[in-house]
Structure formats: structure tokens, C-alpha cells
Design a protein around this nucleic acid. Structure first.
Lengths: 167, 167
DNA sequence: TCCGTATAGTCAAGATACTTGACGATATTC
DNA sequence: GAATATCGTCAAGTATCTTGACTATACGGA
């Protein structure tokens, strides 16, 4: 139980990226645990990442592909899983024979509702921990950061190599 | 190119967790791209997550396992990869015949140095985007959040189910 | 109207990053 | 010394992503 070397003092990271990563992981772990405790056993981080891009009113699968920062095949596989779990369903798009509409099932909407509640609970916990002022500053800074950036999509699209140079 | 439905207006997420996640992903994507551009082709997010827990002076593999929020087998596999890449090396622990010491090779230390530089560049970019004041508030809030929490490890350890109830 | 091309989605195969389970070797404790 | 715990490894399986190849539908002219 005795720490023989005080490695804590030896340059473990403390920069924005690391902090953001830790904070993000902590939030996700807390949220996912609460969701599963609420009976949504199908909930995973990867699925959450995708669901975040599906508005309550539904969307086209192709729109989803544009927004999320992964390949269309990845989106498809995640949707396959969510569909199998009964969280979302896919319908043919009446306006485009090629397209599919993705929308929530009752089960999915229930999960969203629970998610909203949990989200607020976590926020309350954060405010308790760091104070309302700091919390507001945090959100403000994150929003500014997001707005100031061409956002993740461009970056990843660029990295991935412009599927179609629609110049 | 015409947006037929204005889905933007339909409840896409805007809460701390989502913002943190997006910000974290953006940071990592930027960092990883810069690292690879600098010749560290072996660099991946998962490896970065582990390296962040290895102090420059090295550490015991078991200490690494305690700190990182994944299973010991995952840590091992990541170390296997890093060792194969020549980034770290493992030596027997002279003080405990069971243990192994993990430390950086020259190549690893070079990568850390480059990483530090890139990290500062990214920070500079952030400050340009949102201003020094907001940036300071961001870091301050993240630090407070981290300090206020029993941190990620307890949570994940609890979730995973207490390998050994060392009561 | 028909043809070329772009777009939406699917199928298949493989890589990476994890997981749990089982195990051998060394320490520790009594 | 013997029971027990810890450290690391080996093996096998799962989730999440990737690239490549393909089908079906839509669209924009000649």
C-alpha cells in the first residue's frame, strides 16, 4: 500500500487536451452507467455518439452520415444494431427511392426522455462541485470553441481524404 | 445542396457532456494529425491515452494498470504494441521478481518532446479562437471538476466490479 | 428518351481496441 | 512452509471502426 516512488510528481499530463479527454470520459461513464441502471442496457458510448446526431423528428440516413465523423459503413452498422434493439427504425424515403428515413421508436423516445433527465442530474452534480459560475464559464468556453471551429466534420473529412471532391 | 428539412432546429444536443465530447474529439484529432505529420506514424488515440499515464521517468506496469481505466489485459496489449514500435521498453523490476518496469526509449522521449510542442501550438490556436480569458476559465473549470471528483478510476473500477474486494 | 454520372445504401472482409477467463510465477503472511 | 494474493501472460471473443466492391435509384443533358 506504500507508494515507493512518488510518480505523481513526475510530469503526468495537465493540459487542455488531457483535461477535456478525462472530463469527457468521466461524463460518458456517468451517463452510460445511469442509462443502464435505468433499464437501457443497449446503451453504449458509440451508439450515444450516433444518437446525438439523430433529431427527435428523425432524419435521413445520408444526413446522419454527413454529420457524424465516421464512415457510412460504420453509421450503417451502428444503425443495424440500434434497429435490432428496437431503438430506431428505418423507413423508405418517399421522396427519394434510394434513401432511408431513420426515426425513433417508442422505446427510443423513452430512452431520450430518460437521457434528458439524467443529463440534468449530472449537470446539477457538476454545479454542486464547481459552482454555478465556473460551470457557466465552462459551457460558454466550450460553445465558443465549437463556434470558432469549422468543426470536427471538416477536419475528419479532410483527413479521410474527400470521398468526392464536389468542388 | 438544398436543405429540405431544417433539422438543425430540431433538438440536436447542446449540453456539457456533448460539448465536452466534441471538444475532446476535436483536440485529439488535431493532435494525432500533427503527430503523424511529424513522423510518429505509430501514434493513435488509444496509445495516447495510455502514454499519458506513463511518467517520463517510467513506471511499473501494475501502476499503469491501476491508473488507466481499462483492464490489465488491454494495458498489456497496448504496451505490446508500443514495445513493438520501439516507443517503450519493459525491464524486469529488480525489487519485485513478478513486476516489470515500463520506460520510454529514445524514440519515445522524442515523441513526447514533439508532443509537448504540438500541444502548445494547439493551445495557442485555442486562445486565438476564444480569447485568453475564456481559455483560462475553461482550464480552471476542468481542473476544478477533476479535483472535485473521486476521479474516473473509482467509477470505472466500481462499474467493472471490484476485481478483488480488498476490504 | 436514353445515357453517363453521381448519390444512397448494402455486403464483405479485415484492423484495432477492448473484454472475460484461465493460468504460471513470484511475494507475502501467518 | 503453506495458504493466499499480486503481477504479468496467453487465449479467445466482442464491439467498433476501416476500406473495397457492389446494386439501385436519381439527375442532368445530348
Amino acid at each position: 500500500m506504500v507508494k515507493e516512488l512518488d510518480e505523481k510528481s513526475d510530469s503526468l499530463p495537465d493540459h487542455v487536451g488531457w483535461r477535456l479527454w478525462q472530463a469527457s470520459r468521466a461524463w460518458q461513464a456517468e451517463f452510460a452507467a445511469a442509462m443502464r441502471a435505468d433499464g437501457h442496457a443497449w446503451f453504449t458510448d458509440a451508439r450515444a455518439g450516433l444518437l446525438g446526431h439523430i433529431p427527435r423528428g428523425g432524419t435521413r440516413q445520408s444526413a446522419l452520415i454527413e454529420r457524424s465523423a465516421v464512415s457510412k459503413q460504420a453509421v450503417q452498422q451502428l444503425l443495424d444494431g440500434l434497429e435490432a434493439e428496437g431503438v430506431i427504425e428505418r423507413l423508405p424515403d418517399p421522396r427519394d427511392g434510394r434513401g432511408k428515413l431513420v426515426r425513433y421508436t417508442r422505446k427510443g423516445l423513452d430512452a431520450l426522455r430518460d437521457g434528458d433527465r439524467i443529463k440534468l442530474q449530472i449537470e446539477r452534480g457538476y454545479i454542486d462541485r464547481i459552482g454555478e459560475r465556473r460551470f457557466a464559464a465552462l459551457v460558454d468556453a466550450l460553445r465558443a470553441l465549437d463556434a470558432g471551429q469549422g468543426d470536427l466534420l471538416e477536419t475528419t473529412a479532410r483527413i479521410r481524404g474527400e470521398t468526392s471532391e464536389s468542388k
